[in-house]
Nucleic acid binder design. Structure first.
Lengths: 364, 364
DNA sequence: TTGTAAGCGTTATCAA
DNA sequence: TTGATAACGCTTACAA
């Protein structure tokens, strides 16, 4: 007879492996209150019917014992862990804020966040590390994933493992090739276009772009839109491009600046590149913005602290995180695996500080 | 008879609440392999004895079905969730790196990280929010906590809830009053002393300190050691202090600089304060380092990007996170609740850039 | 209003 | 070498 209502859990033989913390269970309360485990469950879960008198007694005992429900036990039964897996390179000024945004929204909805920090940029072992984290999350039965893919190619890694189990998945900041999932990020095409239009409007006709890795959608799209917009001016405006990593070095920046037909205004794929341009400009004794206008992307924490302050296209990382969380929470209600992919693009916002100026000022 | 080996889980009536993802269980494999659930468990867990033949068949089936063990189910039984609760304000350039360090170390040990982001600084509702997160972690039965307390006062919140359940707890970066738990952080006393000694060695005799909130140990200790060291010089060196939040404003900095007996060198409790001093100095037309030496604390991401580069006492957030993880992992092996509190203090490292100079240069 | 039975997916124990 | 059984803490379904 599988009667578990028997008094006293087997405490006599404390198996070595079992940490056996002092955790209170429904049975503990039930025994003390003289009711069944189910009644306690109903009272504390506030569902079903029970008398006020019972409720008071049960609640009092639960509080005195500092009862805390075991969500894992519940999850094993309900199939919902109330946990979301968040997979992104958490260090660094951008993604840490995405994490914050996602966390806040999820916490408000009663979900907890499992954090996995994948490598910031792609390398040979990056996929392997990422896959390990994905597995760790699957094993803990997260209800959904919010993740920043290392690059377009990560599809193979995720698709099979996650989509196959029909666990909702939202990609953040970088798209996955053959997007089979929801996406939240910045409108990089708009950003690239705004950058070109802004610098052009300032009178610059020799533009430069310090680009990022082509295998990453955000970098690729910004460049695409920037170049396309420049081509569309049809007034002889030129655009020189140098591609580097996201963390462009001073050397990368010099490649773009240390030439005869130097651009008078440069759009960097990221504020990091802009910082590199500051360093290169200083080395070449170019004054910003008089000799060189610099436009960044992201509005990272240091943008306003540079001298002069960096003009940049601000992203809104907290909003990205929040939107991703909302999307993923929406998927959880639905029984349908994936009706149609949703995409949320947040427009970047031009912040003008001191690093950009009209072309004319270069001749003052 | 509670015979669960029966073939076919109840799939006929898909209860509405159950998400019923396509998850494979030990029973599914056992059925297909024609063995018992236990044999499968043993094979996949690689414990106990089993024939090579059985092993191969079971493994093959498990792989073909993409089996992933349910760690929650396991945890309910073993009492170990293999999950650590990490509670800190994850946005921002410092704690995001602590999180990264802790994550890396824990992931390497096979643990997952539950992330809770508490408010960056204390307020009336900060404790309540933090308590909610602590509860969420306890409900998910984390094996241990790594957390950054809002302030000294948070003791009451944590002590009862965590310590009482004898869940290991490591405080990070800020101490809890009446420290009943392990602590990992920067050696703030050493930092304060090094700051004073360095500026004094440069010849400065009128020092200033832009301090942080007194209720936070790191700020308090830095100030304490700075003032004590200055007093110890016994050569008439003075020290003017202005207390602000960690994110000191330009106005805070002006309070310190816009006075007749202005200090010639200022130690800021944090690089944030140093940045504020840069702004204030610019407003007052003071040149750094000629008219004013500025020394920061932390070596945040922007320290090297300021102009001039900020001299600062570097912290090592990744190392703090890693050490905290190690400490907490060490506690998990022990059956003893808490033998003795351990403390790991990482020495700050003086990084000299361009914001500090000998007193003499002020007269050139 | 309350309780019993069964089951979630796993592991420990002991018997076969 | 394998399997039956109970247990972990909880919830749903149904019976009283």
């Amino acid at each position: 007879m599988p009667n578990r209502g028997k008094p006293g859990k087997k405490k006599d033989a404390p198996a070595q492996a079992r940490p056996d913390r002092f955790q209170v269970s429904l049975d503990d309360i039930a025994r003390e209150a003289g009711v069944s485990r189910m009644t306690v469950s109903r009272v504390l879960g506030n569902r079903g019917r029970f008398s006020e008198k019972t409720r008071e007694r049960v609640v009092a005992i639960a509080e005195s014992k500092r009862y805390r429900p075991n969500r894992m036990a519940r999850a094993v039964h309900t199939g919902r862990s109330m946990t979301i897996g968040l997979l992104l390179p958490v260090h660094g000024p951008y993604y840490s804020r995405v994490a914050q945004g996602a966390h806040d929204e999820l916490a408000a909805a009663g979900y907890s966040v499992l954090l996995g920090s994948n490598p910031h940029d792609h390398g040979p072992e990056a996929h392997a590390a990422e896959l390990r984290l994905v597995h760790a999350f699957l094993d803990r039965r997260v209800d959904a994933f919010v993740l920043r893919p290392v690059n377009d190619d990560a599809t193979r890694v995720y698709y099979r493992e996650i989509h196959e189990r029909s666990v909702p998945l939202v990609a953040v900041d970088r798209r996955l090739a053959g997007s089979f999932c929801d996406f939240v990020g910045t409108d990089d095409l708009l950003g690239g276009r705004l950058a070109a239009e802004y610098l052009h409007a300032l009178g610059h006709r020799h533009l430069g772009h310090l680009a990022g890795p082509a295998a990453v959608s955000s970098a690729r799209l910004r460049r695409q839109a920037f170049e396309k917009t420049v081509a569309g001016f049809n007034d002889g405006t030129t655009c020189q491009v140098v591609a580097a990593g996201f963390h462009a070095s001073e050397a990368d920046a010099l490649t773009l600046l240390d030439r005869a037909a130097r651009p008078t205004a440069v759009f960097a794929v990221t504020d990091w590149g802009a910082a590199a341009l500051y360093a290169a400009a200083q080395r070449l004794r170019l004054r910003i913005p008089h000799d060189l206008s610099v436009l960044g992307f992201a509005d990272l924490i240091f943008a306003g602290l540079l001298n002069p302050g960096l003009s940049t296209l601000a992203q809104h990382p907290e909003a990205v995180g929040r939107e991703a969380a909302r999307l993923v929470l929406g998927r959880l209600g639905q029984p349908t695996p994936a009706l149609r992919n949703k995409t949320v693009l947040l427009p970047p916002e031009l912040i003008v500080r001191g690093s950009t100026a009209p072309r004319a000022s270069a001749h003052l």
